[in-house]
Design a protein around this nucleic acid. Structure first.
Ligand SMILES: [Mn+2]
Ligand SMILES: [Mn+2]
Ligand SMILES: [Zn+2]
Ligand SMILES: [Zn+2]
Lengths: 160, 160
DNA sequence: TTGTTAATGGAAACCATATTCAATAAGGAG
DNA sequence: CTCCTTATTGAATATGGTTTCCATTAACAA
């Protein structure tokens, strides 16, 4: 039963407690994995990592915790099309780390990119305004993903 | 056992046969539903419609046929985030009917839009070139979806 | 018409995620 | 620090869309 040095709390504790959630060992471990991994992890990925340190934490708790974290805007949830959700820590709550993904159709590798996001944001602002007006639709967020072949798979790709 | 008027074949027969697939009653019925529906149908949607005319066609065949149709580029497959895939006929194989989707987070209504696609295409051309160069990634297609609240759900939406 | 073999459907398997429920522990009150 | 309330937990089970199995059927080339 590890005990935290008094007064030292991760940034997300506030938001977490603010919404009436309790801070538990499992939840800390899960967040810790997300923060350190800095990649796109599946629930199972997270479960295995957490489990290696705290074998008592179950997969169910991982799913439940991830759900809360998404709701609180602490992590992103993505679907890269391989049948399982992926989770990624939100580095900057103000949206400065806004990025999109390049997804390899062959090896499922995922590349973050932020290049051209400025142009993109500008176009989307116009598009969103136009669409909002024309269809009376209130756009709250968007999903952009490029699919193709990564460096490794590009050369000797096995069809498909 | 209906028999088609001699010599009259839908446009997709050629591509279908060209890839070594047989034209069966079930497959024709499925394509027929997709063509006439002109909407975003789930496998179950299609199954029920087909089933009402040809009760002998099973759900398995629907799934198998849809898989082939996607592979041949005759239909699109989308994931709008409600846990089931949606299928939509490709009207123009040359990509002139290229469009994206507005998805209501509340009622799951889906709106096709083609507005601003020109600007978008232009931006994407630049983006794709840049990304392809920087990451050595061969982009073959993209996915763009806007999420938000539709006209009906915008006013009196029940939280979420 | 016939023979080869792709296609079929019904049942069962799959698999990520959700739910149930009795046991546990976080954390506010005292 | 101790107690008490109740959110949280893990294990088992359920869920639901999609896939696989396999014996039967039917498309279509010859
Ligand atoms: Mn990312
Ligand atoms: Mn569409
Ligand atoms: Zn790859
Ligand atoms: Zn709606």
């Amino acid at each position: 039963m590890p005990r935290r040095a008094r007064g030292v709390y991760p940034w997300w504790h506030g938001r977490f407690r603010g919404f009436g959630h309790r801070i538990t060992l499992g939840r800390e471990a899960i967040l810790d994995v997300l923060i350190k991994a800095n990649k796109h992890l599946s629930a199972e990925d997270i479960y295995m990592k957490v489990h290696s340190v705290y074998p008592s934490v179950g997969l169910t708790t991982v799913y439940r915790t991830l759900e809360i974290l998404v709701k609180l805007g602490i992590i992103y949830k993505f679907d890269f099309g391989d049948g399982r959700a992926r989770y990624e820590i939100v580095k900057d709550p103000k949206g400065v780390d806004h990025h999109h993904h390049l997804i390899c159709s062959n090896c499922n590798r995922v590349i973050d990119y932020t290049e051209f996001i400025d142009d993109e944001v500008e176009l989307f602002k116009r598009t969103e305004e136009g669409l909002a007006k024309k269809y009376d639709f209130k756009i709250t967020n968007h999903l952009i993903q490029f699919y193709g072949l990564c460096k490794e798979c590009s050369g000797k790709n096995k069809g498909f």
